[in-house]
């Protein structure tokens, strides 16, 4: 048997453990399940996310990919009746452990949402929100430095540097989404979660976001959930395919899209369902 193949006894699945051995693992899960009341949304997922790489999670609607993503910064806590089993380890500590403060966790694990959701405040206040909440930076010039750096990192600075006091909602959709990325970066997180960040944007804005992901790779561990398989192929280093709550295949993006091991994966990426 091929040593790089690990077979889940219940589901036909394949995890490329061999290439992962070379990577620095940032987050991993072991037998991790999530329940909504009595429905199991994620079933015993074993997934390792390599550090400073872009990992894409793909799968048809309702397969649990967003649920898994939102577990990483415990945004699922907001949903009543949602609980989890198993281990999800970040930086040597169980994310769902008793001693973990979700507020502190979220400062290290930033998130960008499906729809651009800037606050109805000025552009400056949007970016400064994270630093103001997390640190005790009251100094205006220090805040200005952070705002400028974040906006530059998000490739938005040149477009809006003269409009920092305007309402963030006056920006275009693509700019708003990059603003949200800048806002997440301002907290200086280690992991950046992106939940279908381009699904509400037009193709041009989408390509700018994808460019941005390319720039941010290497600096942050990025996990991106996407419906768009071409996007996953374009931006990610690793890809995980979820189907009905199970992790079916996890491998190098190039390999998963060209030579998938599992039949289900092949069917999905060739568009036979989903």
């Amino acid at each position: 048997m091929n040593p790089s193949i690990s077979i889940n006894p219940n589901v036909m699945s394949y995890i490329d453990t061999k290439s992962l051995e070379k990577e620095d693992i940032h987050v991993f899960s072991e037998g991790f399940s999530i329940f909504y009341n009595d429905t199991e949304a994620i079933r015993e997922v074993n997934l390792s996310i390599p550090a400073h790489k872009v990992t894409a999670i793909i799968g048809p609607s309702g397969c649990g990919k967003s649920t898994f993503l939102r577990a990483l910064n415990r945004m699922n806590d907001l949903i009543p009746g949602c609980y989890s089993k198993g281990k999800l380890v970040f930086d040597g500590e169980d994310v769902y452990g008793e001693n973990v403060d979700p507020v502190l966790l979220r400062r290290r694990v930033g998130m960008v949402f499906q729809k651009p959701n800037p606050f109805p405040k000025s552009i400056f206040d949007n970016i400064a929100f994270g630093p103001r909440v997390n640190t005790h930076i009251k100094n205006k010039s220090e805040l200005c430095g952070i705002v400028e750096k974040s906006l530059k990192d998000a490739a938005l600075w040149d477009e809006i540097k003269d409009r920092l006091n305007e309402n963030a909602l006056s920006l275009s959709g693509g700019q708003q989404q990059r603003l949200c990325i800048a806002r997440a970066l301002a907290v200086d997180p280690e992991i950046l979660l992106m939940d279908e960040p381009t699904s509400a944007l037009d193709p041009r804005a989408t390509s700018r976001i994808e460019e941005l992901i390319g720039v941010l790779r290497g600096k942050y561990t990025i996990i991106i959930v996407t419906h768009n398989m071409q996007q996953a192929a374009r931006v990610s280093d690793y890809t995980a395919f979820f189907y009905e709550g199970d992790l079916i295949e996890f491998a190098h993006t190039a390999q998963l899209f060209t030579k998938p091991y599992v039949k289900k994966t092949e069917e999905y990426i060739t568009g036979r369902f989903g």
Binding site: N73, M75, F129, G130, V133, A184
Partner: peptide, 27 residues
Amino acid sequence: VPKTYKEAALSLGASKIRAVLTVILPA
């Protein structure tokens, strides 16, 4: 107030009361 405001505030490491006072209440 859109739920997304609250989610955004919490995802940036704001405590619940902070999110309410700085984002949800003004909105």
